[in-house]
Design a protein around this nucleic acid. Sequence first.
DNA 1: CTGTTAGCGCCTTCAC
DNA 2: GTGAAGGCGCTAACAG
Lengths: 369, 369
Amino acid sequence: MGRNARRATNGSAGTRRRPTVADVARRAGVGQATAARVLGDYGSASPEARAAVLRAAGEIGYTANAVARSMISGRTYSVGVVVADVGIPYFAEVVRGISDAASADGLQVVLVNTDESPAAEIAAVSLFVERRMDGLIAVPAEREHEHLDAAAAAGVPVVLLDRLLPGAAFDAIVINNRRAAAEAVQRLLDAGHRRVAILTSAPPGTERLGSAGDIWTTTERVAGYEAAMRAAGVPNAEWIVRHAGYNRQATRAAALQLLTQARRPTAIFTTDSVATLGVLDAVQEVGARIPADVSLIGFDDAEWATLVRPRLTVVRQPTHELGARAARALIRRIADPAARPRRQTLAASLVDRESVGRAPARVRRLAPT
Amino acid sequence: MGRNARRATNGSAGTRRRPTVADVARRAGVGQATAARVLGDYGSASPEARAAVLRAAGEIGYTANAVARSMISGRTYSVGVVVADVGIPYFAEVVRGISDAASADGLQVVLVNTDESPAAEIAAVSLFVERRMDGLIAVPAEREHEHLDAAAAAGVPVVLLDRLLPGAAFDAIVINNRRAAAEAVQRLLDAGHRRVAILTSAPPGTERLGSAGDIWTTTERVAGYEAAMRAAGVPNAEWIVRHAGYNRQATRAAALQLLTQARRPTAIFTTDSVATLGVLDAVQEVGARIPADVSLIGFDDAEWATLVRPRLTVVRQPTHELGARAARALIRRIADPAARPRRQTLAASLVDRESVGRAPARVRRLAPT
DNA sequence: CTGTTAGCGCCTTCAC
DNA sequence: GTGAAGGCGCTAACAG
């Protein structure tokens, strides 16, 4: 095959000091400044000097030391990214968007998962400041933002993604959650449903509050639900708001309870795809038919949304675009730290498919099979 | 709410020089070394000195500069991670595994997506070397590994993930692809199928070769298919090996062609979940029933595998574990660069569900609806 | 225990 | 165009 099968040393040679500009300069017979100029590609040097330096560099295998450069430039060409969990498709796609836009600008992405733990987020942000990241993109776990303020004050610009922080003056890229949620619930109401439930999956530690915790996104979506229900004249007592734990099992259990209770909802709106997954599990468990027994609309257009039968009506978010915009906003902010914070609200759109049907005339009782 | 609503400055103060150990020392009235010792938490200092330094540091808002530290220690406490695309669930989960194990050891993850482009991978690796990463974890896009050898030679240890590189002396974490594939195909064979097809999704640029390109994983899985077919005595002429492009549409098209051709396969084995998605799309498009018309086994246990009807029989990989092991292997290698390269082969397991059935006595002709 | 003094590798005046 | 020298912020010798 003619492939280069030379044995890799896998770092065992790493203890040997790596050549520096001084080494190159010495070997090329020029001053260190000259070597640095051609190696760093700035200033000017005579063609002869340039050639000599390049040759010497090649011979001894010189590689630039970006750490030393960062020390002088003050830039690391990296952005810190804080999300709950890249393992979740939504975040994975957002991170991909960030990565694309960042690398298009020569920035690398340093990724941290917090699992919505404020402590983990605080630690990550402070580490990012110490490491002199050029900037941060965060999906904040809670409303408290002193740590982000501190980062900004220390000269590390911050861009918020997915969630807004009341009272914080950062650039932010979000979608219009309230409107999108209201629109989805309205679709359900239009189909004649009255007992419409909203199921959210709250991060660990907050679900015990019986609320969605401090997650802005969820709060907004619930607000959208309430607005639509109110506008439709559904009495407050008929509203069904449930917060489950942040995983498929927990949402499945919550949905199971919801579906089998007396005066069960005939339609469910889930605020994220983890919850949607849980509801679908529960639906199958009680043998309910969608949309004959229950109608369903979920947030996020998962790859499997068109695979299940019936295909799911969903609220689609521009995930990749959200990430890309956040990165671009950060890049702008790095270039102009003094600019006024700007919020970009992207549109989420309702994608009609087949999981919404007319409310049943007579509500069939559901029970685990 | 009593929340701290102080205005964030978002980096506008970033132009102001950040305090250094020297500043702290001066203010605390101690020598720079003493200040450095308590701030850096090494050596020893008297309780009084310590207190004074800490107080001073707090007053002027000192933050350590990790870049300067890296310059001296030679360590950046970051690992470079090269994958094709975090947007794909498989990689996302693997990255999460890496991140968990890495952060447990104080290492941060710098993530790069290559979309299987060798050029992008080479650029990323060389950047990682310049940035003095403590180590690299790569899902290599092609068999060529000079760039990885160079990284190792420059003292940046490399760990291979998911794919082996013939002739390269790196630690590697992989699964037993060949065996897992053979086992899956065997299950199909056991159900009486003879015309069993294997569908792979090759990265862009390689599918034109009509092969899976240089992706080791795919090659192995095809080898497993062939081994099983051969062992079952299925004549070579009956084997059906198809390589589609690296996306859902391409695999859908390939599957469509497969399902509607004369003497179509009665069972399909897909080598990754993108391909599985494509096949499912095609199956629905031609109105085929699983497993009555076609049986199906796919690689990777996607979250939706139990959601579709029938539930999918799949080959499950320990994705998170693969990533975690890779990170741990790297950590060990960083500690002991001279150790002998070690390969860890994890087991993928066949998860039996309902997408495999007896081969139909009479093969129903399928056509797009 | 503490302070002084050198660098780490590079870029950047500043004279020449 | 080029070289010498200083310094980025920190740690690592050293003496004291």
